[in-house]
Design a protein around this nucleic acid. Sequence first.
DNA 1: TATATAATGCAAATGAGTTGCATTAATAAT
DNA 2: ATTATTAATGCAACTCATTTGCATTATATA
Lengths: 131, 131
Amino acid sequence: MTRLPLNTRITPSRKAMIDIFASTDHPLSAVQMHKLLKRLNINANITTVYRELEFLLNHTVIHKIDISGATTYYESSEGDHHHHAICTSCGNIQDVTISDEEAFLTNVRKPHDFTIKRHSVEFYGHCGTCN
Amino acid sequence: MTRLPLNTRITPSRKAMIDIFASTDHPLSAVQMHKLLKRLNINANITTVYRELEFLLNHTVIHKIDISGATTYYESSEGDHHHHAICTSCGNIQDVTISDEEAFLTNVRKPHDFTIKRHSVEFYGHCGTCN
DNA sequence: TATATAATGCAAATGAGTTGCATTAATAAT
DNA sequence: ATTATTAATGCAACTCATTTGCATTATATA
Ligand SMILES: [Mn+2]
Ligand SMILES: [Mn+2]
Ligand SMILES: [Zn+2]
Ligand SMILES: [Zn+2]
């Protein structure tokens, strides 16, 4: 929850994107966000969407969900730390938590002198409807 | 270690790529592999390299290392299961093992009805020389 | 109301990876 | 050894996500 810089201007697309991320539990791609904005009659350019995603990432309002060989998704940084399960058949993304993630991290035998800043954990497989 | 199909032809670039992966502990990108082949006087087209990587992936000779916002790397499937630490400053990739990974997996609270086929774990931060 | 500059639109560029198609070459069959 | 089959390849063109340069617009501030 870093504060946004004081020189940050509240533009319609920025406000809308922040609101959308805050009010949905579902990850979104840049293109999906672009379409959502259109539906709200906010006709931002896709470039603007990408730039705003970058901005929100930089200020930890959102974070990335990297999917192997596919488009990047983004979701709000609100809520507890968690990871994702991605269906390789339909692309469906679901939340995954690791109970006692502390223990998991202490079991990581990281390279000598490596300082871990963040980690990324994804599970790939088939969701209920694709099984 | 799935067998390669019986109709698989042993071409110079295929043999070289298999050998290279088998004899190095270092992950390689498609472009790096392409350059390595050149140095061995094997002038395969970059398309051929991509196609061969796909082939070797399909037959589990190698596997992917997905790096957030960067080029994909590949490494041999030989050796014990492990993960990676990626330096966000210099791109250096190092192996990471999780002791008692069994425990880690049993602590994963996966979505109901989701069948996990594989998982991906990466650590991002700064390596020794970039600290 | 005027000013500074953050944000935007648009077109063009980038970069990784993919695809279609004609050609070549590894292997099996004769 | 020769021929036939088809896997593998080269090349150019393409796709797709994302980025960049630059001129223009609009938000916040004075
Ligand atoms: Mn999530
Ligand atoms: Mn490795
Ligand atoms: Zn599914
Ligand atoms: Zn480094």
